[in-house]
Amino acid sequence: MSTTNRPAIVAEGLVKKYGSTTALDGVDLTVPTGTVLGVLGPNGAGKTTAVRILGTLLTPDGGHAEVGGYDVVREAGRVREIIGLTGQYASVDEDMSGRRNLVMIGRLIGLSRQQARSRADELLERFELTGAGDRVAKTYSGGMRRRLDLAASLVGNPSILYLDEPTTGLDPHARNGVWDTVRNLVLDGTTVLLTTQYLEEADALADSIMVFDQGKVVASGRPAELKAQAGKQSLDVRPAEPGHLERVAAIVAESVGTRPTVDVVNALVSVPVSDGTSMPVVVRRLDEAGIAVTELSLRLPSLDEVFLALTGHVAEQESTAVLEGAGR
């Protein structure tokens, strides 16, 4: 990963308001050339708004941003020449074949018919879509569709790529495929700004992470630093009898030395831990107390827990519900 002097993306004090809601409330960010920034946050945190501004689709109400040295408002045309955009928006045409979508984009950005065709073939092959290239895009599976979206954003060989929740809704296999692609692009020198709801994803791909909450940056740093703040892993204990929740919580607190969160609805006790060493202690104490458990596991902290650890409050109500559904 090469890092040159000039950052690929610099934003200062970005503000965007929709009526009385403030989607972005003074966001600063810097992405060094050739690195990956992971923007982590729940729905409605302002991640997409930030990407849309940096992608010239939205004009900020305050602050300014430069991408590749060009101002995103005054030199939007120049910015569009060097960026690629993939997300919930910026979609391909579902009623056209994958190949035609790619050829169309090639033609639009000024490739000759011949160049556009060979570029499309090359991208289809690279994203393992050659066989499906002539099928209409709406027949694609979720993973194929995401790969086509990604291919579409790469037709112009962008040096800076925005990926807005590239794996949301994908199965683990398809998700790994997208991850591999991103890693390869970065090896080729592409700068990537990636938004995600999953700490695991940011951890797997990003050189540095920013956590957004309600339009503000609430934490930033290297993945290891954030995870250290949040607790590297989470120890979950689910008693067989919901009535034992309190006692389990007390045992866990005593064994780990941190007060656990008690989720009454799911009858689950969770606590952030730095490693698995406290697990045997918990098991022994539970056994001594004669408490049966249905679940005892170590896992990466969910975004909720990272949030709680970093911000001291849970992510916005509405989004927590979604995240809990997605995370477990």
Binding site: E81, R107, L111, Q115, R119, E122, E128, G156, N157, D188
Partner: peptide, 28 residues
Amino acid sequence: MSTAALSPTGPAAQHAVRRNHPFAWVQQ
């Protein structure tokens, strides 16, 4: 997915096409 170098139609080549074409919008 291969990491093979991307085609000879690099960004520089494409920009040349775009910028030197005042009627690009017609073709688009």
